[in-house]
Computed example of a mutant assay.
Amino acid sequence: MKPTFTFSIIGGTLLVLLMPNLLVAQTNDYGTTRRPATCPSRTKPKTGAPSVEQAKMYFICDYEGLGGIQGERGSYMWLVGDINIEVAPVSRRFTPNDLPFNNRNGGTQLGMDPDKPVYDIRGSYTSYSCFNWPDKVGRNCDVDYFSDSTGICFLDTFGGWHCRMIGGQMKSERNVPPPTN
């Protein structure tokens, strides 16, 4: 019985000692617990327009990401919040004007399928660009507020949905705290 009690004390003591480190480990180099979103699947809906919730999810997954060499000074993270999106109820054909939406942050191509229908979207969102500046943790993000943005939801050549918006009126703030949710 005594060894169990002793191990309980040791285990409890270790837990108390390690708890601050666990909390610190939950934040990243950008001073937030937020991580860029990823979409486990992009295949719904099979037909018709994406719902507003689906369009938001695909927009977030396309927009958010990491850049630079993670863990090194100057690396960065894109996050998005306060998203309002309207999805057009009817589709239209692809046009060459849609090509700017084919680029992901960082310049990679999304593989837009020009033979599939395109759904126009419009809305507003808040964009966070947070940088790994150890001397500025807690005030290391730039925030851009976009209103009256326009974009599209489209299918790539593998049948996955993407939703992108650009432009619109913008207001900016610099050196602000990172988002918490």
Rank of each mutant, 00 (worst) to 15 (best):
M1T: 12
I9R: 04
L15R: 01
V16W: 08
L17Q: 05
P20G: 13
N21W: 15
T27R: 05
Y30C: 07
T32V: 07
R34A: 13
R35N: 08
A37N: 04
S41N: 15
T43G: 09
P45W: 12
P45K: 06
P45M: 11
K46N: 06
T47P: 09
T47G: 09
S51A: 13
V52R: 15
E53V: 13
E53R: 05
Q54L: 14
A55R: 14
K56E: 14
Y58I: 04
I60C: 03
C61W: 03
E64Q: 10
G65H: 10
L66I: 12
G67W: 11
E72I: 08
G74T: 05
G74A: 08
G74L: 13
S75A: 15
Y76H: 11
Y76E: 08
L79I: 00
V80N: 00
G81N: 15
G81P: 08
G81W: 14
D82F: 14
I85Y: 10
I85D: 05
V87Q: 04
V87H: 03
A88H: 01
S91I: 01
F94P: 04
T95I: 12
N97E: 13
L99I: 13
N105K: 06
G106A: 08
G107K: 04
Q109K: 05
L110P: 00
L110W: 08
P114M: 11
K116S: 14
P117L: 10
V118F: 15
Y119Q: 02
D120T: 06
D120R: 15
D120Y: 07
D120H: 12
I121V: 15
Y125S: 10
T126S: 08
T126A: 05
T126C: 09
Y128Q: 03
C130N: 05
N132L: 14
P134T: 12
D135G: 03
K136T: 02
V137E: 02
G138I: 12
R139W: 11
V143Y: 10
V143A: 02
D144F: 05
D144E: 11
Y145G: 00
Y145V: 06
F146I: 03
S147Y: 06
S149H: 04
T150A: 01
C153N: 06
F154P: 00
T157A: 13
F158P: 00
F158E: 04
G159N: 04
W161I: 03
H162F: 07
C163H: 05
M165T: 00
M165R: 00
M165S: 00
M165L: 06
Q169C: 01
M170D: 03
S172A: 06
E173A: 03
N175H: 09
N175L: 04
N175C: 02
V176G: 01
P177H: 10
P178N: 07
P179M: 00
T180M: 12
